[in-house]
Nucleic acid binder design. Structure first.
Lengths: 201, 201
DNA sequence: ACCTGGATAGAGCGTTCGTTCTAGAGATGT
DNA sequence: ACATCTCTAGAACGAACGCTCTATCCAGGT
């Protein structure tokens, strides 16, 4: 029999390594893309060894990437849900969302952009599993916006089209902001999206 | 002295090899990204040898990529100018632009997306030259939209903000369309952008 | 005390990467 | 004719890639 502290430590260590690998891979893929991130780099920065990586992910690099993208997708869903809930008016909520994205992007030195875009674009030719994970993440995000709009009385078709537009526009604005190292594209896009939403009132 | 035909052939071959390298690199980077595209693959698909590549581009892979991105940027500028000129009404013009992007994307098997996004996202950490070329391309495209809007009587500030929004939204919609293998994100975004523009009338 | 199986550790595999280097082909100027 | 220069051709280098493999560690059950 072991103490509760030992159990906690053991459990934390057992599940901890796998989580460290996923979180580290997610951050690296977000910054360097899928192809640009090596398995050995992931292992090193996650304070794990190659053996551990292949122990938890027998599927190799692709399996690590899929888990990392799913993690990033869920993480951004949390952010999105929170940001959308910050205001009752959907136009205000979306604009607030863009502003927070801009602030976090600047805080990261313009490096931590959309966690799925980079991986998605690189693997469009093949790698179906990765692209699938990206598509699923995008669908989840759109669903969050759609539900917010439905809750505010938008018609079903309008809510669907606007959700697609909002997620897409934020994504594009984030890329533009990263390339130009400026918060403005995101702030401007947030303003215009708010105007678009208000035009339905 | 050589014949005119020989001169033409020689000239075509001399400048032709360099152009083939640039065009091939542009297409490959567009589809596979900067990191995912190898110098040897570029040489092979451009029907050139490694020696030729390094002869024309002593700067190596980065120099080839910069030339390729500049080429892609200029090419898309031509497309954009033509699409924006297809209708006098800016809302119609932008929507037409989105539709044509959707059609061409489907025709390419959802593979030929934005020629600069992929390269830009991969090289944000370092590689200043490449990022610079991407930023310049984006700026050119925004300028084309802005001038179109200015020509249609929009106020300067509105035209600037809308140009940023339009280019960003189209970019994001293109990525969404690629990941989902569907024209709808682009068509929907085109519609909503048109609505946004009309709200200024 | 012994065994078992999950987790860690890293050397080493074959391949491909970007780049460098030398050799030669072909047209031009003198 | 010869020398010169641009361009082509591809072998070879060191480094890094993803992955496989064996060895070791250590907690839990018997």
């Amino acid at each position: 029999m072991q103490t509760a502290a030992e159990t906690a430590a053991t459990t934390a260590s057992r599940t901890g390594t796998r989580d460290r690998i996923v979180v580290t891979a997610a951050r690296l893929i977000q910054r360097q893309g899928y192809v640009g991130t090596g398995i050995k780099q992931i292992a090193q920065e996650a304070r794990a060894t190659l053996g551990s990586v292949y122990h938890f992910f027998p599927g190799g690099k692709e399996a690590v990437a899929v888990a990392a993208i799913e993690h990033s997708g869920a993480e951004f869903s949390v952010f999105l849900r929170e940001a959308l809930g910050s205001a009752q008016d959907p136009a205000e909520a979306v604009e607030h969302c863009a502003v927070r994205l801009a602030e976090e992007l600047r805080a990261s030195g313009w490096v931590d952009g959309c966690p799925v875009t980079a991986a998605a674009l690189e693997t469009l030719g093949g790698e179906t599993r990765i692209q699938q994970a990206c598509a699923e993440a995008l669908r989840d995000w759109e669903a969050l916006v759609r539900e917010k709009l439905l809750g505010c009385g938008f018609a079903a078709d309008d809510a669907r089209e606007l959700a697609t537009t909002v997620i897409g526009a934020l994504e594009g604005a984030e890329v533009t902001a990263q390339v130009n190292r400026s918060e403005e594209p995101l702030r401007v896009t947030g303003r215009q999206l708010a105007r678009l939403l208000r035009s339905y009132a």
